[in-house]
Design a protein around this nucleic acid. Structure first.
Lengths: 295, 295
DNA sequence: AATAATCAATAAGTATGAATTATCAAATAG
DNA sequence: CTATTTGATAATTCATACTTATTGATTATT
C-alpha cells in the first residue's frame, strides 16, 4: 500500500492519456492491458486522486489528469534532455542548445548566432528546427526547445522575450507591375489590389501589423489568399494573384520573379524576438544568450 | 542490461551525492549498502557515464555527476510540487470554472456567485462569457463551458437545470408616456401599443411568457421590433418606437431615459436558471454549486 | 431479442530484479 | 601486523510488475 511513484507510472500514464484507450496504450507500451490497468490504478492510489474517468466505453482525463499530463510531458522531456547533457558532459562536451526559428529568421540572426557559437564555444552542440510561432512556444513550455525566434508581442507566463532584430516591411509586386520604387509614395496606391498574407494563426502579430499599416493609410485590405510559406506567397505574387507585404529581409534567400519595394517611411517594424523559459536550467543556453547580447 | 532509469535511482543518487559516503547514504535511505552500490552502478551503466569517483577512501562527484545532482534536485522538487497540485486539483481546491450568462443575469446572481467564490475558494479561477441561451447550451454540451445562466424551461438530455432567481416583469415606457405607476392597473391599458421584445430564438421562454401575460389580459400584442440586446430595446422605447416588457432587474445597470412599472400582481415570473452537464467532472464546479445552493 | 464483439477490471500464477546477508579486497590507522 | 573501515561481489530471498485466463458491463450486429 505504501508504494512510490516511479517514472514507469508516468510513461504508462502518458500513453493512456494520449490514446485514451487502455488496450491500445498497452500495445504501444508492449505490455498487457491488465498490467497497465493495475499500474494506473496504483498511480491513482498513490496520488490519492482520480486521473481518468472510465465511463461507458470511454476513457477520458479528469482536470487533475489533464494537468498531470502537461507536467509529465515536461518532466519526461526534461529528463531526456538531462540524460543527453550528462552524457555530453561526461564525454567532455559542454552541452546542447535546441533552437527553433521562423523561416524568416534564417536570413540574418540565426546564422550569425550559429557562427558565433561555433567560434566561441565549439563544444556546444546545436539542433535547429524551423517551427511556427505557436509550435515554438509549446515546445519551449514542454522543454523540447531551449530558445526560439518568433514574431510575437506577448508570450505565456514563465517565458521571457527579447527583441533581437527589427526589419522594415516591403511591398512585394509582380515584376511587370506598373508601380516601382520611384513611383511609390504611399501604400494606398495599391489599396484596391488583392492581398496575400501570412496566415493569422501562423503569425498573429504580423497579421495585425499589416492590417494596421493599411489602416494608417485609410483602407482595409482585401485579403485573397493566406499562406504559411514565404515561397508560396512569392509564387502567388509572381502569378499576379495578388500583392504582398512581408518583412524586407525575406527578399534574400529566395529565387523569385517579384520586386520588393521597401517602405521605409511607415512606422511599423517587423520585430523578431527570442524567447526562452525563464527558469531554463540548460547551462549551454547561458553561453548562447551571452553571445546574443553582444550581437 | 537494458534497464530504465527510475526515480528510485535519482533518490539514491542524491543521497550518495549529499553524503559522499555509501554506508551513511544507505543508512539514511534505510537500505543495505550493497544494494545501494549496485543501484548506483546500474545508473552509471544506463547513463553510460561515470557519476562518482571512488578513490582511496574517498567518494566524490564527477563534473557530470555534479551537473546531474543539480538537475535531480530540481526534478524531485518539481515532482513533489506536481503531486501536491494534482491532489489540490482533484479536491477542487484549484482550478477553473467557465461560466456563461445572459446579459440579464449580470445584475445580481452572477456577481454574488463570483464574490462568494473569491472569498471561499480564492484559488478557483473563473472565466466569464456573455452568451445567448442557445450558445450556452451548445458550449456546455461541447464542454467549452462548465456552468450557464439561462432563461429556459427545458434543456437537452444530459444537462441539469435549477432555478436560482425569480424576477417580476416590468413594463418599460418612454419617460413622457401618460401612464405612470399610480395610474397603472392592468396591462390591457397598453394593449393597442406597439411592443418591442427580445427575439424569440434568443430566449423562447421569455417570449412565450410575455405572450401569456398579454393573453391573460385578453389581447395579442402587436410586436413591432425584436432585439437581442436590452440596451437596444431601451433605446427604441426611449425614441417612442414602442413599449417593452422585460425582467425587472434589467432596470439597474443601464443609463436610459425610460420608466419602469413593476407588475407585481401578474403571476408570471422571469426565471433565471443555472445549467450544467450532469456528468461534468470538474471538481471546481462542485465547489461552485455548493456555494450557489446556499445563496 | 439474441448473439457477438469490445472494453476495462479482476484473479491467480510467474518471473524479473531489487533487496537482503555474507564475504572479500583494498586502504588506512593504531 | 593486526584491527577497522571502505565499497564491491556473490549467493540468496522476496517483493512486485507482469503474464494469462476470465468476468462483467456495454455496445454493435443479425
Amino acid at each position: 500500500m505504501n508504494y512510490q511513484i516511479e517514472l514507469r507510472h508516468f510513461i504508462y500514464f502518458l500513453a493512456v492519456a494520449e490514446e485514451l484507450h487502455y488496450r491500445k496504450a498497452a500495445e504501444k507500451l508492449f505490455i498487457s492491458q491488465p498490467g497497465l490497468s493495475t499500474q494506473i490504478k496504483q498511480m491513482e492510489e498513490i496520488l490519492a486522486t482520480q486521473l481518468f474517468v472510465r465511463d461507458k466505453k470511454k476513457v477520458s482525463l479528469t482536470p487533475a489528469g489533464e494537468f498531470l499530463k502537461k507536467e509529465v510531458e515536461f518532466i519526461l522531456n526534461h529528463l531526456d534532455q538531462t540524460k543527453k547533457q550528462v552524457k555530453l558532459i561526461g564525454d567532455g562536451q559542454l552541452g546542447e542548445v535546441r533552437i527553433g526559428f521562423l523561416g524568416s529568421a534564417m536570413q540574418n540572426v540565426v546564422p550569425n548566432l550559429l557562427l558565433g557559437l561555433k567560434e566561441k564555444y565549439p563544444t556546444v552542440h546545436t539542433t535547429l528546427e524551423e517551427l511556427s510561432n505557436r509550435a515554438q512556444i509549446n515546445a519551449i513550455l514542454a522543454d523540447r526547445l531551449d530558445l526560439g525566434f518568433v514574431r510575437l508581442s506577448r508570450v505565456p507566463k514563465g517565458l521571457d522575450v527579447k527583441p533581437v532584430f527589427e526589419d522594415t516591411f516591403s511591398l512585394v509586386l509582380p515584376e511587370d507591375h506598373p508601380l516601382d520604387e520611384d513611383g511609390f509614395n504611399n501604400i494606398n496606391q495599391v489599396a484596391n489590389e488583392d492581398f496575400i498574407l501570412f496566415s493569422q494563426d501562423y503569425s498573429p502579430m504580423y497579421y495585425d501589423t499589416v492590417l494596421s499599416i493599411c489602416e494608417d493609410s485609410g483602407f482595409v485590405p482585401h485579403v485573397s489568399h493566406k499562406s504559411v510559406h514565404a515561397q508560396t506567397i512569392f509564387k502567388l505574387v509572381e502569378n499576379r494573384l495578388g500583392i504582398a507585404i512581408v518583412p524586407t529581409t525575406l527578399q534574400y534567400g529566395f529565387q523569385m520573379k517579384v520586386k520588393f519595394i521597401e517602405m521605409k517611411k511607415i512606422k511599423q517594424r517587423a520585430v523578431l524576438s527570442m524567447v526562452w523559459k525563464t527558469d531554463n536550467r540548460n547551462p549551454a543556453l547561458q553561453k548562447c544568450m551571452d553571445l546574443l547580447m553582444k550581437l
